[in-house]
Design a protein around this nucleic acid. Structure first.
Lengths: 203, 203
DNA sequence: TTGCAAGACAGACAGGTGTATGGTTTCGTC
DNA sequence: GACGAAACCATACACCTGTCTGTCTTGCAA
């Protein structure tokens, strides 16, 4: 051994790199160096390289800020646009100028966006007014999926039901009535994959 | 003007950079160059520099992959550990070896973690079994806050009520009874700031 | 035509960053 | 004490990446 207990500094380096990566900013070798007060770059690089060797880290060789977490750990996080309302089916334009952003895991497949829910038509499904739904963009959906669909000139969140040839957008609130649409009138914007409710404003 | 309509390529460059940044990976100048087929690095850099001048981008001078979105746009996304259960108050250990990660905005202040909810004691507050709550770590909380507290050797999600000197952990389900605790027995692990429910498994 | 502004190009330079080579210190083991 | 393993140091080198200078092209306007 030498200077410190074997593996001790190594683990601290891993913890440092992981913390930085979870924050979304990959460190450089020299940033690791200065974080630990190493007087040589090589000290930092040796630890990083050893961690890769042990399979606890991955790296993109030659690239700056190229160290990544090992397989099995998340790829990172991404932001998707949050829209408050989608008028006249202009989803594309709404996504260009969003009201905000929400964070999702980067390993989600497909294109996603988020929508703030208005109205109480889905309270039975645990989707309350003001909630944010994360939506995977897709033009079709299965029976029973909670979807975002355009009906008229506004987007709405409902459960999709297939009744033979017809399609029904079914609310989850007895005070609302199902919407029966013919194929031409229906535009499915995506499928709801997650519901989020912030408790921040209660402070 | 020259080669293309003024501002046209500029906007496309901004869109490219923003898309990359929302994915969590800042591009280099030369990556912008090759994405647009510029034959000179300077063509890409001139656009980027102009975007900074216009206030539509920010940058960390001299740093590699240093271009960022302008003020007012989110700082990025981060991952926080997700724990399934917290036994015997060993929160620190649980966070070191999480069951997974969830994405949150990087501009949240404080340290956060996520917890998968078990049991139906908070269904009245819209928190169902299997839901994930995002928790801000803090040792105290106000009356009415939904908190994660350790009672006995397990973590629990309840509404915090202050009854004079006593503290009550109040469920949101008539089938459960409030927990009255004296100060010494109570360890507040954090305050719930968001509730999330995945609909993925329904596919 | 001339001038000008904006876009694009070519080439170079400088600092950031990953990498390599060899040496030094510390501690445990034979 | 000799040896070896692990941690650390010093010093380069090479490539990645941001930056600068000068020039050319294009389209518009005086």
């Amino acid at each position: 051994m030498a200077y410190t207990t074997p593996g001790e500094t190594r683990s601290k380096v891993l913890a440092f790199v992981r913390e930085r990566l979870l924050k979304g900013e990959a460190p450089t070798v020299r940033e690791v160096q200065s974080a630990f007060g190493f007087r040589s770059v090589e000290s930092a690089r040796a630890h990083l390289e050893a961690l890769v060797e042990e399979g606890r880290l991955t790296k993109l060789p030659g690239q700056s800020r190229g160290y990544r977490l090992a397989e099995g750990t998340p790829a990172g996080a991404a932001l998707v646009p949050l829209v408050g309302r989608v008028a006249a089916g202009r989803l594309r334009e709404a996504l260009e100028d969003p009201d905000g952003y929400v964070a999702v895991r980067a390993d989600l497949r497909g294109e996603h966006f988020a929508l703030r829910v208005e109205g109480e038509s889905m309270v039975g499904a645990g989707i309350l007014p003001g909630d944010v739904v994360v939506v995977r963009r897709q033009p079709t959906a299965r029976d029973g999926d909670v979807v975002v669909a355009r009906v008229g000139d506004e987007a709405t969140v409902k459960t999709l039901r297939r009744r033979g040839g017809a399609v029904v957008l079914e609310p989850a609130n007895p005070a609302f009535s199902p919407i029966v649409v013919t194929r031409g009138d229906l535009a499915i914007l995506g499928r709801v994959v997650e519901v989020r409710r912030s408790l921040e404003q209660e402070r």
